[in-house]
Amino acid sequence: MTGRTGAAAARLRRAALALRWRRWALEALVVLALVLGIRAWQQQGVADGPAPPLAGVLLDGRSVDLLAAARERPVLVYFWAS
């Protein structure tokens, strides 16, 4: 009788383990779908391509072309209004 009981217990453990792995895989797929969906939603309005030309005058009167400056290194443009 112990042989049958042991075999049945082993079958139950295997079934529980398989169920645990299936649940883990389903949870991983749900998390992955959420992450990819949120990422796609956040990037829907992002501009694509090169920056438009931007030129201006510095406070000392010299002219500046940001497209030429951007070829050498990254440029941060900060706009403000008063």
Rank of each mutant, 00 (worst) to 15 (best):
Glu27Ala: 06
Val35Tyr: 11
Pro50Asn: 05
Ala68Arg: 08
Leu36Asp: 04
Leu29Val: 02
Ala9Asp: 07
Val46His: 05
Ala68Pro: 00
Ser82Thr: 14
Gly3Thr: 04
Gly45Val: 06
Gln44Asn: 04
Ile38Val: 15
Tyr78Cys: 06
Ala81Asp: 06
Glu72Phe: 06
Val57Pro: 00
Pro50Trp: 07
Trp41Phe: 10
Ala28Asp: 08
Gly49Gln: 01
Ala28Val: 08
Leu29Asp: 12
Asp65Leu: 04
Asp65Lys: 03
Arg71Asp: 10
Leu58Ala: 15
Ala25Gly: 01
Ala8Tyr: 07
Ala8Met: 13
Leu17Arg: 13
Val30Arg: 12
Arg23Trp: 10
Ala70Met: 00
Arg20Glu: 03
Thr2Lys: 10
Ala16Asn: 08
Arg62Tyr: 01
Phe79Leu: 07
Val64Lys: 02
Leu59Lys: 08
Met1Val: 05
Ala8Leu: 12
Arg23Ser: 05
Pro74Thr: 07
Arg62Glu: 12
Ala47Gly: 12
Ala70Lys: 01
Ala9Met: 04
Gly56Ser: 04
Pro52Asn: 08
Leu54Asp: 03
Leu29Pro: 00
Leu59Arg: 15
Arg62Asn: 09
Ala18Arg: 11
Leu12Ala: 13
Ile38Leu: 15
Glu27Arg: 02
Leu36Lys: 03
Gln43Leu: 14
Ala47His: 08
Tyr78Ala: 10
Ala81Phe: 08
Gln44Ser: 14
Val35Cys: 14
Ala15Phe: 04
Asp48Gln: 11
Val35Arg: 14
Ala7Met: 14
Gly3Glu: 10
Ile38Thr: 15
Pro52His: 11
Trp80Ala: 12
Val64Gly: 01
Arg11Ser: 08
Glu72Tyr: 06
Ala16His: 06
Arg4Asn: 13
Arg14Trp: 05
Gly61Phe: 11
Gly37Ile: 00
Leu76Phe: 09
Ser63Arg: 15
Gly6Glu: 10
Gly56Asn: 01
Ala47Arg: 11
Phe79Gly: 11
Asp48Trp: 11
Ile38Tyr: 11
Val57Ser: 11
Ala15Pro: 00
Ala10Asn: 10
Ala47Leu: 14
Val30Asn: 05
Ala8Thr: 10
Pro52Glu: 13
Ala25Gln: 15
Ala81Tyr: 06
Leu32Arg: 07
Pro50Arg: 07
Ile38Glu: 11
Ala28Gly: 11
Val77Met: 02
Val31Gln: 09
Ser82Gly: 12
Arg23Met: 01
Arg22Trp: 13
Leu32Cys: 14
Ala10Gln: 14
Arg20Asn: 02
Ala68Lys: 06
Trp41Leu: 15
Ile38Pro: 00
Gly45Glu: 12
Val75Gly: 00
Leu54Asn: 03
Pro50Tyr: 09
Ala51Val: 03
Ala68Cys: 03
Arg22Met: 04
Arg11Cys: 02
Ala51Leu: 04
Arg23His: 10
